[in-house]
Amino acid sequence: MVVIKRKYVIPGDLITDKNYKPLSNVIKIDDKIYSTRIGLAEITKEGVKVIPLSGPYIPKVNDLVIGKIVNYSAFAWEVDINSCFSAYLPAQNVFGKEFSTSKDALSKKLTIGDLILARIVSFDRTKDPILSLVEQGLGKIFNGEIVRITPMKIPRLIGKKGSMMKTIEKGTGTKLIIGQNGVIVIKGEPQSILRAIEAIKMIEEGAHMQDLTQKIRDFLGIREKEDEDGETDQ
């Protein structure tokens, strides 16, 4: 694996004046690439990007999110997904194509205050995000402890191919449901939930550090090192 040198940057910092492709959270002005966020700058052969350490959740198509039902009409639910846009969950995306307003009542399935795990099926600059529950594993979340962290640090919590998430689940004996929008639901015994919350807070505070996976392993008392270092995987 090629070691990528990361640099701490704040908005306006010059990352490089060589001709690279700007990827994300950077701006190119006169062939110079500047950061637009606080974060870790990374130069790879694909281009230059900054992994931000703070910021709002901007929906992306195919993201898994945890949301709360705030309202509903005869055709759709309105869902709070911890973002500047409120999401819509049309009834067809819950009941399937055979949905009919006369047969199915929305309030029977989901009501105000319910927590759901959903997938974003469409979103762009002009339209609010549309959610869907038509997929295995999606739907209402009945129990668990809700923890919120900065949405930008979720990739770190999941880790490479879910390694960090697995580490926490294994170390504490809990089950994590992670929404890309910064909402996490933890299921398990009360004591293990507390330990998992502590581990999550550690990740949130130390998201910029390189040896984070090892620190979490030490904290949870896991010794084996079968998978490679789970650094950020976007």
Partner: peptide
């Protein structure tokens, strides 16, 4: 910049 808003 603490709020994480894109700025030049």
């Amino acid at each position: 910049s603490d709020a994480g808003i894109n700025m030049r």
